[in-house]
Simulated assay, not measured.
Amino acid sequence: MLKHLLATTVLVIAVPIAAQLDPGVRMPPEIGAAYGRLGKAMMAHDAAGVRTVWADDFVVNSPDNRVLTREQVIAAMAQEFLDYKDFHKHITYVGEKPEMTVVMGYDTMVPLKGPGAGKQVMRPFTDIWAKRPAGWQLVARQATIAEAR
């Protein structure tokens, strides 16, 4: 069950991020750079690199309402359950506060394994970034597969 869950719910990718911002949406440079580092780390299955972007207390809410920790997601990454192709991030909203930033939008990708394998899926998401001593870190994510084509 956890393998099925992780294959369909979690963050970014095993291919470079192609991000598209809606008109009028501005991505803070530090968070844009963190998304880039995260994409590279995920693609390389680099747990140490992922840990620099995901906070120690990072959690993700999955489609079946299970909350997964950073280490549970990294374990799935190590087993190649989070590999996708044709991954695109569409940013529709960025809300900046001094110590927190909310990023919303949707991802489109083709999972290589698990449910939807070989089909394009759309996954709306909400990412919560917090300013920490180490810099901006992702602390929470909600991502649910909305549609498979």
Score class of each variant (00 low, 15 high):
Met1Ser: 14
His4Met: 06
Val10Ile: 09
Val12Asp: 06
Val12Cys: 07
Ile13Lys: 09
Ala14Pro: 08
Val15His: 12
Gln20Ser: 12
Gln20Leu: 12
Gln20Gly: 06
Leu21Gly: 03
Val25Ile: 15
Arg26Pro: 03
Pro28Val: 14
Glu30Ser: 14
Ile31Glu: 10
Gly32Glu: 04
Ala33Ile: 03
Tyr35Arg: 07
Gly36Gln: 11
Leu38Gly: 11
Lys40Val: 12
Met42Leu: 08
Ala44Asn: 15
His45Thr: 11
Asp46Cys: 08
Asp46Tyr: 07
Ala48Pro: 00
Val50Asn: 13
Val50Phe: 13
Val53His: 01
Trp54Leu: 15
Asp56Cys: 10
Asp56Glu: 15
Asp57Pro: 08
Asp57Thr: 10
Val60Trp: 06
Asp64His: 08
Asp64Met: 03
Asp64Val: 01
Asn65Phe: 09
Asn65Met: 11
Asn65Asp: 12
Val67Met: 14
Val67Pro: 10
Thr69Asp: 09
Thr69Met: 12
Glu71Tyr: 05
Gln72Ser: 03
Val73Leu: 05
Ile74His: 02
Ala75Phe: 07
Met77His: 06
Gln79Thr: 13
Gln79Asn: 15
Gln79Glu: 15
Glu80Ser: 15
Asp83Asn: 14
Tyr84Thr: 00
Lys85Ala: 00
Phe87Ser: 00
Ile91Arg: 00
Thr92Asn: 01
Tyr93Ile: 00
Glu96Val: 15
Lys97Arg: 15
Lys97Tyr: 14
Met100Trp: 06
Gly105Arg: 02
Tyr106Ser: 01
Thr108Gly: 03
Met109Lys: 07
Met109Trp: 04
Val110Arg: 03
Pro111His: 04
Pro111Ile: 01
Leu112Val: 12
Leu112Arg: 07
Lys113Thr: 07
Gly116Arg: 00
Ala117Ile: 05
Ala117Phe: 03
Gln120Met: 05
Gln120Ala: 05
Met122Gln: 02
Met122Ala: 02
Arg123Phe: 01
Phe125Trp: 10
Asp127Trp: 08
Ala130Tyr: 11
Arg132Leu: 12
Gly135Phe: 06
Gly135Lys: 15
Leu138Cys: 12
Val139Glu: 11
Ala140Ile: 01
Thr144Pro: 07
Glu147Trp: 01
Ala148Gly: 09
Ala148His: 10
Ala148Val: 04
Arg149Ile: 00
